[in-house]
Design a protein around this nucleic acid. Structure first.
Length: 405
DNA sequence: TAGGCCATCTGGTCCT
DNA sequence: AGGACCAGATGGCCTA
């Protein structure tokens, strides 16, 4: 903000010393100094903190009020370093430590002179108003930008596996969870492909890497986040016993004769080598299987928990009224187990269907703040088109894979 | 009360 | 010139 060269007062130059103001500048004029060095100002000029001094002190442009004290060259301490300028107040922005070396080859700027010069002086009040206006506009843009960023994060939360409503993920948790979740799903698909092709699953160790890598979310942290009342069940984890913590082999991955189980945070993914796969979280389970009606799913005996169970489903969806009472209890394990067994009997998923599955959204609905027709929540893009909200239920097209959680 | 999270303000930098 | 993006500073709110 404070500079030793007049040209460095870019913002000030632009508004005051450009053609608009008619202020003549030259390199010799550049010995301006921040007014904060020796001067007490009667008004806030933190962003205008300079005094403009002509080489000839008798010819002086007034940029401030009369009660502003100008500093004349002979009174000015020679400034050799940027640190020699001390700001009036400690601003929130860090002070620039180093000044860019000037390019000697860079031609000096030339300024209009004489008759051609358009002189339009602005009063200090006008300057302040202009700068204030700019600042307000910039603040507004920045605010909107951050709001958009937060909305994007909310939409991301919508499509992540469910967790208790009262534990809204923080920004960093959301990003980390999304990272791990995408990783888990991609690895699941990869593993499934290998299983269907009869190849060994050499990539399984990747799941250990998932929670061992520093930038990944620690699984214990996830438990703390998603299972805050972990003492309920005595064993430390209140749902999906044996699955929401590392498997007996100590890893997050368990291979059985029927398929594989992958645990990522509060999410357990089962991939069955006979077809029919399930993702289960602390808030329910969902299948990736042959298309079937929602009614069929309900009649299978396992509830498909949407994202926001209490804010929407428990209030509006009669099918979930009873399910909520057994939301966090030992029965979840049985639910998971039954779901897994049911999945075994389902038709094997074709490669085409898996391609469709990669486009799914598991967001049964979004946060309360979004209306159900809100495009920000259900954008009409190819990504979301496979599963659209129709009334209270999603319409599932002929190739739709049920992937709700 | 300390610490975490968040929204906002702010100035700097880069780009068009 | 103005907008986008970034990061530091700050204060409010909440929770352990």
């Amino acid at each position: 903000m404070y500079a030793t060269d007049f040209d460095d007062y870019c913002d000030f130059n632009d508004s005051v010393c450009s053609n608009d103001s008619g202020f003549e500048r030259s390199h010799a004029d550049s010995h301006a100094t921040p007014s904060s060095v020796n001067t007490t100002l009667n008004f806030d000029t933190s962003d205008l903190a300079i005094s403009v001094i002509s080489k000839d002190s008798t010819v002086r442009r007034k940029l401030f009020h009369d009660d502003y004290t100008y500093i004349f060259p002979d009174q000015i301490k020679e400034v050799t370093e940027f640190e020699d300028f001390k700001p009036i107040d400690n601003t929130s922005t860090p002070i620039k430590k180093e000044k860019k070396p000037k390019d000697p080859n860079k031609p000096k700027r030339k300024y209009a002179n004489g008759k051609n010069r358009v002189t339009r002086c602005k009063s200090p009040t006008q300057i302040l108003r202009i700068k204030r206006n700019r600042r307000m506009k910039a603040n507004d843009r920045e605010r909107n930008r951050m709001h958009m960023l937060n909305e994007a994060l909310d939409r991301l939360r919508c499509v992540l596996p469910t967790f208790p409503e009262d534990t809204k993920l923080t920004k960093i948790e959301t990003l980390r969870f999304a990272h791990n979740y995408i990783f888990a799903l991609s690895q699941t698909l990869e593993s499934l492909d290998n299983i269907n092709c009869g190849q060994p699953s050499a990539e399984y160790n990747n799941y250990d890497k998932l929670t061992c890598t520093a930038e990944k979310v620690n699984k214990d942290a996830f438990r703390e986040i998603f299972l805050p009342n972990k003492d309920e069940c005595g064993d430390g984890y209140r749902s999906f016993q044996g699955y929401s913590k590392p498997f007996p082999n100590g890893s997050n991955f368990l291979q059985t004769s029927e398929g594989v189980l992958i645990n990522v945070g509060n999410v357990t993914v089962s991939v069955n080598n006979k077809g029919g796969n399930c993702i289960t979280s602390t808030t329910g389970s969902g299948f990736f299987s042959h298309p079937s009606s929602l009614a069929d799913d309900i009649h299978q005996g396992y509830p498909q928990r949407p994202y926001d169970i209490t804010s929407y489903t428990e209030r509006y969806d009669p099918r979930m009224q009873n399910a909520s009472t057994e939301y966090f209890n030992h029965k979840n394990y049985e639910i998971f187990k039954n779901a897994f067994e049911t999945a075994k009997n389902r038709k094997q998923v074709s490669a085409v269907q898996y391609n469709n599955y990669t486009n799914f959204t598991n967001s049964y609905h979004c946060n309360e703040k979004y209306s159900y027709t809100d495009e920000s929540c259900y954008p009409q893009s190819n990504y979301y088109n496979d599963q659209r909200y129709v009334g209270r239920d999603f319409y599932r097209g002929p190739s739709m894979v049920n992937a709700q959680i």
